[in-house]
């Protein structure tokens, strides 16, 4: 098995998540090479061959030309697998590369199994075993699925490539920074988060009351923030805040992967849910199977006494 890893730059430096690509390469075995749009002054720790496109000319987001670079590297390496992270960069670029090669793509890979790939489906609740039928396959890796044991090391042998090709009708016009975080959830010892299952905005104060009874902060899952029930600065998840409190209480949160990414490193996780099989159960130390609002009220009541 020969693997081509597509490393990522985020905001001017190699993404920390790149080590999951190395974790995958270690799990898959065989030869591996890398490709990156980046700069020689900041290369990922990787001991293999690295095809490098210059970020100064290619930019951090230019999927037309980045795809071209990956295709050039693929032509030189003839890999069996071209591997991306399941990230805003990876899920955008991978299908463009797969489409150009007419290669099978397996998204959100969580494991290797029976000569195929296991992927998450049904909102992370179920798994599929998928087998590509093409000579080369494109993968995106579900975050957290291929941890690297140890610290990555090595200096890559760089070969520079200068892809031609067009920007595919796109022009990157810069970043818009997130609003200033007035609530720093990362410092809270206890976080009680509200999920969509609380039902309505009127129930938010009861969740906040439980948080306060535990001397903690209130957090929220993405749908609750999207619905305007809770401010964005309390959102926990991949696109909100990444937290690791001593106690995390997830109230009526099913556990979409992007939420789990934000809280799975909490020391102790309690999930209150009516669905015993909700994906949050994968990370919960305690699952309380109950209607959330009466339970939250009873718990708050007892804690206050």
């Amino acid at each position: 098995m020969k693997t081509l890893l597509v490393f990522e730059y985020r905001r001017g430096k190699p993404a920390e998540a790149n080590q999951e690509l190395l974790g995958f390469a270690a799990a898959a075995g065989g030869e591996c090479a890398g490709v990156l749009v980046g700069a020689e002054s900041g290369l990922p720790a990787f001991g293999g061959k690295l095809y490098l496109g210059d970020i100064a000319s290619l930019g951090e987001y230019d999927p037309g030309r980045h795809a071209e670079l990956v295709l050039q590297a693929a032509q030189k390496e003839s890999p069996d697998l071209i591997v991306f992270l399941q990230s805003s960069y990876g899920w955008d670029l991978a299908p463009r590369v797969a489409g150009r090669l007419k290669a099978a793509q397996v998204s959100a890979v969580t494991g290797l199994a029976e000569g195929g790939f296991e992927t998450a489906c049904c909102n992370g609740k179920m798994r599929r075993l998928v087998k590509p039928a093409t000579k080369v396959a494109v993968l995106t890796l579900q975050e957290g699925s291929f941890p690297l044991s140890g610290t990555p090391s090595g200096t890559p042998a760089v070969e520079k490539l200068a892809p031609s090709g067009s920007s595919a009708g796109l022009e990157f016009a810069g970043y818009e920074e997130p609003e200033k975080k007035e609530v720093d959830l990362a410092k809270a010892e206890v976080i009680v988060s509200a999920g969509r299952g609380i039902g309505k905005k009127d129930n938010v104060p009861a969740i906040a009351a439980l948080a306060s009874a535990l001397n903690g902060e209130m957090g929220a899952s993405r749908p609750v923030v999207d619905a305007g029930w809770v401010d964005h600065n309390r959102q926990v998840g991949a696109t909100g805040q990444i937290v690791s409190p001593k106690l995390y209480v997830a109230c009526a949160i099913s556990g979409a992967i992007q939420h789990l990414t934000g809280m799975r490193n909490s020391e102790f996780i309690v999930a209150v849910n009516t669905d015993k099989d909700a994906p949050i159960s994968e990370v919960a130390d305690v699952m309380v199977i109950a209607d959330v609002m009466p339970f939250v009220a009873a718990l708050t009541d007892k804690l206050k006494k």
């Binding site: 793509q105 590509p132 039928a133 099989d277 699952m287 309380v288 199977i289 109950a290």
Partner: peptide, 26 residues
């Protein structure tokens, strides 16, 4: 098709979390 689904199944649970259920909320 370029790829096929061979199997569909529930994930193996990593943690053996405690389940509290039954009885009233209090």
């Amino acid at each position: 098709a370029l790829a096929g689904t061979e199997k569909f199944y529930a994930p193996v649970k990593k943690g053996t979390g405690l389940v509290l259920e039954g009885g009233d909320a209090a």
